[in-house]
Amino acid sequence: MFFGKLKKAHGKVIINPNWCKGCGYCVKYCPTDVLEMSKGYNAKGYHPPQVKAAADCRDCKFCELICPEFAIYVTSDKEEEQASASA
């Protein structure tokens, strides 16, 4: 089937917890629910996000776009992509 042959994009989320101010936008608006708020505190006393489902990241970069702090970005994860393509 056509769609079965489409490669799934994979991304790797990079977070700088110390720039985060805990607004939660990335967690709430991640379309594949990759992130969650951590229980821990950063240096400013906010709860930064952490990755809970890394494999689900589809590299859409919406967290990067919506983060008001420039504290999160996504890199394309080529290894993962190839692994899922061959699977």
Binding site: K21, E64, P68
Partner: peptide, 30 residues
Amino acid sequence: IQNPMAEFLRMERMPHIWCPGCGIGSVVTS
């Protein structure tokens, strides 16, 4: 250095002064 915004921002001035949840930063990214 590695942040994709590095070529657009004066990174030496980060983090910025805007409050938690303020929308300005994301418009800058856009």
